Simulated scan of single mutants.
Amino acid sequence: MMSRRKFLRGSAILGVSVAAPSLLLGQSGMYSSKGNRKVYRVLNADHTKVGTLPVMRAFAGDHLDHVSPFVLFDEFGPVDIKPGSDALRVNAHPHAGVIPTTYFLSGSGHHKDSLNYDFQIQTGEYMMFSSGRGAIHMEESGQRLKEEGGKIHGFQIWLNMPAAYKLDDPTTTVFRDDHMPTIIKKDFTGRVVLGELFGYKSNIKTFTPTFYYYLKLNKQARLNIPTDPAHNAFIYAVSGGVELEGQHALKPNQLALYERGQSNINLYAEEGAEVFLLGGQPMNEPVYSYGPFVMNNEQQIMQCINDYQSGKMGDPDKVN
């Protein structure tokens, strides 16, 4: 069981590596068009472990000029779980000033927190743990996986909270299908988790303009996705290969950061691909992070530590 003291010793956020440029040779499958966003940099996600859960970490507290309002991006799994085996688990730990969000591509999860929420999260559902001034939660693979076995695969992506809301009361919400429209087109299918795409609009509210799209591109699919030129944007490849502007090749477990100033994000998938495309209005505020605490100055971080140590965020023993 994780003690407060152990948490504080092991709470550093680690960065990831920059990928060597990978360009397609020969003829491009992309149509050129005006107003294309330029790729700034491609990152390799790195293997790490959170509790007993293996993850691929694409960024964590770095590259904020290009990923804000997001601050961390983890892909967990895919992992096959045998019936009756121990749950993959992240023991009780605190958060403050940030919204850890979870989305399952397959499998299920169990969430329990110091706000008296205790529930199972299913495939295709989206959870927002708005930590505000501070709360504790535990995460593990779900009861159905324990009983029946199967694959667990999903994403935990942290959304920063503006300074004006960082000390709000914490809350937890799970959103079902009726909040996130599904797009079915000839070249692709998609889920609009946050924001709006091609007239399909999510009903989930965020503090600042934010978009979060899960897209499955068919073979030979070409997409031209409009975005606000003043907003950040980045794309992560889950499976398959994707061609980006300038013949940049994006491979699985790589993330491309885009420059601001233009609107269109051009994608081409010769053999099909599965991607997440996210971004939004940058938060032009200072960011101080210490492990799971994301605040605006060092004094606030120290207050978070004191609140956690004194039990004001809840009792980890009751959450585990």
Score class of each variant (00 low, 15 high):
H137I: 00
L145D: 08
M138N: 05
Q120S: 06
S141D: 03
H153E: 10
G134C: 03
G150V: 07
D169M: 06
H111M: 02
T172I: 04
S141N: 03
G107A: 00
S141F: 00
T123Y: 12
Q122S: 04
K112W: 02
M138I: 02
L167Q: 12
T171M: 10
H153S: 06
F155N: 04
F129L: 12
G109H: 00
K146Y: 09
S108V: 01
T123D: 05
T173A: 09
F104P: 07
Y117L: 13
G109W: 00
K166C: 05
S131M: 06
T172C: 13
I157P: 01
G150M: 09
A163C: 11
T171F: 15
Y103G: 07
Q120Y: 04
S130I: 08
N160L: 11
D168C: 06
S106F: 01
E125H: 09
L159G: 06
L159S: 14
I157G: 02
S108N: 07
S131T: 13
L115Q: 14
P162F: 00
S130G: 11
L167F: 15
L115F: 03
G124Y: 02
D113Q: 01
F155A: 02
F155L: 11
R144V: 10
S106I: 02
D169W: 05
G109Q: 00
Y117R: 09
T172V: 09
P170Q: 05
E125L: 13
H153A: 08
M138F: 05
W158I: 01
R144Y: 10
P170C: 11
S108Y: 00
R133H: 15
G142K: 00
I152A: 03
T171P: 02
G142M: 05
F155G: 03
Q143C: 05
G109M: 02
D118T: 06
R144H: 12
Y103P: 02
T123V: 15
T123G: 06
G150C: 07
R133T: 08
Q120F: 07
I152T: 04
D118V: 13
L105I: 10
